[in-house]
């Protein structure tokens, strides 16, 4: 046998929190509202599920205030699956986040899909053991969330629309600016920090590495295997699918197809094969038909 170990055991460190995001890369995180949905998602190969009371398309339809889910419902989903379970807290609602941490969820999404609780401040995520994912529409927003302690960024897109156009816009914003920053000289980085309203050290880190200090996933509007592969080819490292699966005609085959498309995102033959005969996707909404853009929430 090998010798024994003495080092201190550290939980909730940045490395441990970002580590789980690394493990989710190349995967699909699916919104689920019941334990049965969660089982379908896991069976289909989801790498994690997002437990919430209503999918974004229904939140959009119903209106009113959208809040953290009932702990009983989250626990029902945790009991049903073996993969990581995420749950959403309102922007700035640090007590919802405290409750989710106490419930032992694996990731908290400080999400614009829920009704914001604070119109100025986001949660101080550095104070938590549980890791956080946050949405962003541009690089400045992403870096501000990372400075607050987010360990994973998702491009926001426009949740509940089944329309990929905003996700594409946000991914191109974030990745395009990162590309430009890698070409900037050291003096220009000060101007970038000012323009992005982001901390200079994070801007300098992007300039050096060409990427965020945390993984970048895509969310908001993915409805088909081709949408998932588009997000991946644009540079996303994994995808969140919300209403796109359980608002479609036949969720299980669509979920499986999106998982395969996310893995084989550059292989058009496989994409053609998995896109066949899935039934109707969610109907979707054009951007000029919506009166509330969730992506505008967050500061």
């Amino acid at each position: 046998m090998s010798s024994e170990v003495k080092g201190p055991v550290v939980k909730g460190s940045v490395q441990v929190k970002r580590g789980l995001a690394e493990m989710l890369k190349g995967g699909v995180i699916m919104d689920v509202v019941t334990p049965e949905h969660a089982k379908i998602a896991e069976d289909a190969g989801a790498c994690a599920v997002m437990a919430l009371e209503r999918v974004p398309a229904d939140i959009r339809r119903d209106g009113g205030v959208a809040r953290m889910s009932d702990p009983e419902m989250i626990e029902g989903i945790k009991a049903k699956v073996t993969i990581p379970v995420m749950a959403k807290a309102r922007i700035g609602h640090f007590v919802e986040a405290q409750i989710l941490q106490a419930l032992g969820v694996d990731y908290v999404d400080e999400s614009e899909v829920l009704t914001p609780a604070d119109e100025t401040h986001h949660i101080d995520k550095n104070a938590f053991t549980v890791p956080f994912v946050c949405g962003a529409t541009n690089l400045g927003e992403a870096l501000r969330r990372i400075s607050e302690g987010a360990c994973l960024i998702r491009s926001k897109g426009e949740a509940g629309t089944g329309n990929i156009v905003e996700a594409v816009r946000h991914l191109r914003n974030i990745i395009g600016d990162m590309r430009k920053i890698t070409q900037a000289d050291s003096a220009e980085l000060f101007q970038w920090a000012k323009q992005l309203q982001a901390p200079l050290p994070l801007v300098q880190e992007v300039a050096e590495t060409g990427w965020l200090p945390v993984p970048l996933f895509c969310a908001g509007g993915i409805a088909t295997p081709a949408d998932a592969a588009l997000a991946m080819q644009l540079g996303a490292e994994a995808v969140f699918v919300g209403s796109g699966i359980f608002k479609s005609d036949d969720p299980s085959p669509r979920a499986k197809a999106i998982v395969e498309a996310t893995t084989h995102f550059r292989d058009a033959d496989i994409l053609a094969k998995v896109s066949r005969g899935l039934g109707a996707p969610m109907t979707g909404i054009a951007m000029d038909e919506i009166n509330q853009r969730y992506s505008d929430r967050g500061w």
Binding site: E4, V5, G7, K11, Q15, G19, P84, D106
Partner: peptide
């Protein structure tokens, strides 16, 4: 599977590996 618990129980620590002169820093995620 997940024998060390959920994400809130994930941890990092130093371990000693046979044949290594100094500890190896190990990150355990679920």
């Amino acid at each position: 599977r997940n024998g060390y618990g959920r994400q809130v129980d994930s941890f990092e620590t130093d371990i000693e590996v046979d044949g290594f002169g100094t500890p190896f820093h190990a990150v355990f995620i679920r």
